[in-house]
Design a protein around this nucleic acid. Structure first.
Length: 287
DNA sequence: TTAAATGTTTAAAT
DNA sequence: CATTTAAACATTTA
């Protein structure tokens, strides 16, 4: 489920307990998920957690770093007592599914990290996600990370405008282009456009100065709100566990097809396809 | 049975 | 070259 706020939530919640733990074993269940040699982790402690856009970085003793990309359906589950059975001792993050409370490992478990206390499971239903282990330096020089644009938080309105206005593509696609700015995916792009009263189809170089400014503020606002609410999830598993993920209750447009616009302007949220992704607009305030 | 799903890459078409 | 469209990756669920 991974957009920036969801990964940030995993970093914060998981980081609290994972930092300081020591790897005691690894099990690679899906070869295609992993790049590098995980066995180098055994005997080493986690020293820190970082995030670059939608990529989670776990720093480990000996100048090692693990990089996780959740893509559409990646999730991390830390089972703290290590029996894999009950969910009450778990810290879960990423794509919300029944696996949040199912016994671990499940059929979607791709990598198992055994710890001195507890077990960490990387699950990924659709197997688009990846885990890369390498030296910290090499991870930081990964092509994937190097080509990422800055996160919205790291640029000002002027730079945001400059970057957006370079393209004629629909503004929503430019928002989601990780090489222009990074961290914004489909949900937050939809909501940011609504915040700014901008039609997602509008050519990115044709917005008014006010619209660029509003869009910049909108992106920052929805991302910050996402982080504040602990990311988004479809199910209520996370809520039931008190482990975060309430942003879905605050979606502006995403998943609200047929519902009234939250501005109360009487518009009915309309869904259409843009660049192959579900796109939601209020025809009243986003024209 | 068909469509769609919170990501990214690649190729082909315009 | 810039942009658009489609498909691919693999699986589940509505």
């Amino acid at each position: 489920m991974p957009e920036l706020p969801e990964i940030e939530t995993v970093k914060l919640q998981l980081g609290r307990v994972l930092v300081g733990r020591r790897f005691t074993g690894v099990e690679e269940r899906s070869k295609k998920t992993v790049q590098g040699h995980l066995d180098g982790l055994v005997g080493k402690k986690v020293t820190g957690m970082r995030r670059k856009a939608k990529v989670l970085l776990v720093d480990v003793e000996g100048d090692l770093t693990l990089a996780f990309h959740f893509k559409m359906t990646g999730q991390l589950i830390l089972d703290q007592d290590g029996d894999g059975k009950t969910w009450r001792d778990r810290i879960v993050g990423g794509h919300p599914t029944e696996d949040y409370e199912n016994p671990m490992p499940s059929k979607h478990t791709r990598v198992i990290f055994k710890l001195d206390r507890g077990t960490l499971y990387f699950n990924d239903q659709r197997m688009f996600g990846w885990v890369i282990i390498d030296s910290t330096l090499n991870i930081e020089h990964l092509a994937f990370l190097k080509k990422l644009g800055p996160e919205p938080f790291d640029i000002d309105e002027k730079e945001f405008t400059r970057r957006m206005a370079k393209s004629k593509k629909p503004i929503k696609l430019v928002l989601m282009d990780q090489e222009v700015i990074s961290g914004v995916g489909n949900i937050y792009a939809n909501d940011a456009c609504w915040e700014a009263k901008v039609n997602p189809r509008r050519a990115a170089n044709t917005l008014t100065a006010k619209q660029y400014a509003d869009l910049y503020k909108g992106v920052i606002e929805v991302l910050n709100e996402g982080i504040k609410y602990g990311g988004a999830s479809y199910s209520d598993y996370v809520n039931a566990h008190g482990l975060g993920g309430h942003y879905q209750e605050h979606f502006r447009t995403y998943g609200r097809e047929g519902e009234e616009c939250l501005r109360g302007d009487g518009g009915i949220i309309h869904k259409f396809d843009l660049g192959g992704r579900g796109t939601y607009v209020c025809p009243r305030c986003q024209e």
